[in-house]
């Protein structure tokens, strides 16, 4: 038999309403309130229930999380379930906070449920699985059942379905699925077009997500005093590719000392980028990583200084997430070295 832990607030624990919302975290063996329903539906034993006042969690989040994680240190459990929190905003925040913390600390699945109007849903839906729950406690039993059904699949290692089919908020994680209907892309495309032309409803298989735009930085006021660095996604590296940066779908980047050279020589540098014809870049790496021109600008006093290193990775097939991670890592180095501006060259 597997073990589960349930998190609820002071109200559902029967301790009290608003007047008891500052109730400090507590762990109890066994069941109370909604845990009874959960335990009945779960193919696991709910061994403990954690209770915390919603205000306490809201005002003393760090302390509350630390305490609760400490409660769990010596417990043997396979899953944490929080809520359901319905439309209660502070309870939703608490469920999301605890589910996320427990999942990250103990590596066990953590589920919760709340109504789509609960601000906690937007806040935590990318971090943990949050089922789309009812507005009020009238839906307690059905909300608990949905979580329990999914938890049972996880505990048994059974196949789980998509967010839409299971009923949880989409997390922005997409995966390949073979349609049981056997409907081909050609059939889906043509029927989607027929619907669109007829003004009927259709469902895009690739909804365009909200754009994640980075604000444009303010301009450098005086370039002649600025320290400029060079970076590229064009895969320019020393000929032996010392950091073994991949030719496509890169997860690694490198930085290379250029302080003692006026240009990148062919045969000493090359490109490892697999997404374009490397001929021109191998013959003259400066066409992708324009060190020659920058050194010229330096001599002319156009720029104040050129950073001693250039940074390089490969852009082809590289995912947005990996690119963002590498970008952040590189930026932290550039900041350490007090770089004022960066020229990022592509291919």
């Amino acid at each position: 038999m597997k073990n589960a832990i349930h998190y609820i607030n002071q109200f559902f624990a029967g301790i009290g309403g608003e007047e008891m919302a500052s109730y400090e975290p507590e762990i109890r063996e066994g069941l109370l309130g909604p845990s009874l329903a959960l335990n009945a539906l779960l193919d696991a034993e709910v061994t403990h229930t954690i209770i915390c006042g919603d205000n306490f969690m809201g005002s003393n989040t760090e302390e509350a999380v630390d305490k609760i994680l400490e409660f769990l240190e010596d417990k043997d459990f396979d899953i944490l379930i929080a809520g359901p929190a319905f439309q209660a905003g502070r309870y939703g925040f608490a469920c999301g906070t605890i589910a996320k913390a427990v999942k990250e600390k103990f590596g066990v699945p953590a589920l919760t449920s709340m109504n789509e109007e609960n601000p906690g849903a937007e806040m935590f839906k990318k971090d943990v699985i949050i089922f789309k729950g009812g507005k009020s406690a009238a839906k307690l039993r059905s909300d608990v059942k949905v979580m329990a059904d999914y938890a049972n699949k996880l505990l048994k290692g059974e196949k789980t379905l998509s967010a839409q089919e299971e009923g949880f908020f989409e997390r922005g994680i997409r995966a390949q699925v073979w349609l049981e209907s056997g409907e081909t892309a050609a059939q889906r495309g043509v029927s989607m077009l027929i619907k669109k032309l007829a003004g009927e409803e259709f469902t895009s298989e690739l909804p365009i997500p909200k754009q994640d735009l980075v604000a444009i930085a303010p301009p450098i006021k005086d370039l002649s005093k600025a320290k400029i660095a060079l970076a590229t996604t064009g895969g320019i590296v020393p000929i032996d590719n010392p950091d073994r940066i991949q030719s496509a779908s890169a997860t690694r980047w490198g930085r290379y000392d250029i302080s003692k050279m006026d240009r990148l020589e062919a045969g000493i540098f090359k490109t490892i980028h697999a997404g374009f014809d490397p001929g021109a870049a191998d013959a003259d790496p400066n066409v992708v990583m324009p060190l020659d021109v920058m050194k010229q600008y330096l001599k002319e006093g156009k720029i104040g200084a050129l950073h001693d290193y250039f940074y390089s990775t490969v852009g082809t097939g590289t995912t947005q997430a990996e690119a963002a991670r590498m970008g952040k890592e590189i930026v932290s180095k550039l900041k350490e070295d007090k770089v004022d501006g960066v020229i990022l060259t592509a291919t």
Binding site: T160, A163, E165, E170, R174, L179, E183, T184, A185, E205
Partner: peptide, 9 residues
């Protein structure tokens, strides 16, 4: 030909 699609999980 693809009977494969992408879904959110």
């Amino acid at each position: 030909w693809s009977t494969k699609t992408m879904k959110e999980f």
